[in-house]
Design a binder for these strands. Structure first.
Lengths: 190, 190
DNA sequence: ACAGGAACGCTAGCGGTGCTAGGATTGCTG
DNA sequence: CAGCAATCCTAGCACCGCTAGCGTTCCTGT
């Protein structure tokens, strides 16, 4: 009876180990370094074990992304609720978003640039992703004026995403990043 | 004497054929379908020939991206110069930018999301890329107010880039795209 | 306690990738 | 026309994601 429970628990732990290994390896050396062989070696099992937990490498990346959505939502919530004023909240949340992307570039990639086949319309991904989006929406609500809030939020989000991706890929020079962020916040706070 | 000229010309033509094949294949089936073997078959040469023209697959993608920069700059210039008013120019150029990205997604990827090792600080890439950027800058100049023009332009560009990438990766729903673009243009035109 | 069976994880391998070493063939040159 | 240099191809390397098939181990019912 309890043996089954133990096995399930061990299975869950191993699955978590796979996700953690993928995450750590991606953060340390980038997603190119995350191969199924290295992942298998990291968790001290053979390759095929990975496929008893996940459909494929993409699914593993998606699992890492899911964790990322939760982290990002938390970071945004913290920034928003600790802000002194609604306008300051916009700046703080924007800064938190950018900081998240810069500190965990590999995870940000998994969330927003790679792994297109994420279960976007099902499962628990929308939960944390929607939470993050809701944080953004609540943040800009006071400054949205008579714009449709969802559209306004999406556009603001796009601005942040564009800044993050263009800068990290070298299309924007690192200096001036704060000023660009300030311009974006300014345009969306009036 | 002229034989050498002919050979050089043939070589240049073959190089162009490689770029064209890569471009067409990427547009038709995505970059994953662009393998060195298929590319070699397409130009009816063996694989190693590719490496006598380009350092590797990345360099081929970079060459496609370079062509893309020129196309994009032309499209933006056309939109800007044919606009009725400065404010309309912002909307038209933004629409042209988004249209370019949507009609040639693979090329846009090569330009802005993949191929990080583009010769960004050397060679002729900056020429066309800078031309495109300059078009954007000229477009938003009348509405930039007392903002630093370069910073302002980069931020606007980021907004466009974010809209394009988030929508194509499924993070934004297709309907509402025009409204989001309108919001972006509005925020940067006041 | 023990036989039967199911679940499990391994080894080995498939087809594919980007890339390269080496030799054969071609074509120019003195 | 001999010799050389450039050119291009065959074959293969190391690696990738993924899977078939087989031993082993462990749980189960009698």
């Amino acid at each position: 009876m309890s043996t089954q429970g133990r096995r399930e628990r061990e299975r869950a732990e191993r699955e978590q180990a796979i996700i953690a290994a993928a995450r750590d390896l991606a953060l340390a050396e980038g997603w190119d370094a995350v191969t199924t062989r290295r992942l298998a070696a990291e968790i001290e099992y053979s390759q095929p074990v990975l496929y008893s937990h996940f459909k494929g490498k993409d699914a593993i990346m998606a699992a890492v992304a899911v964790e990322g959505f939760a982290e990002l939502a938390n970071a945004l919530a913290a920034a928003r609720t600790s802000a002194a004023s609604p306008r300051q909240a916009v700046a703080d949340v924007a800064a938190a978003y950018v900081a998240f992307a810069q500190q965990r570039p590999a995870i940000y990639d998994a969330m927003f640039t790679l792994a297109v086949d994420l279960p976007f319309a099902t499962q628990d991904v929308p939960t944390d992703l929607a939470r993050g989006f809701a944080e953004l929406a609540e943040t800009v609500r006071p400054v949205a004026g008579d714009n449709d809030l969802e559209t306004f939020t999406e556009t603001f989000w796009s601005g942040l995403h564009g800044l993050v991706t263009l800068m990290r890929s070298g299309r924007l020079r690192r200096p001036g990043h704060d000023r660009r962020l300030a311009v974006l916040v300014d345009r969306f706070s009036r």
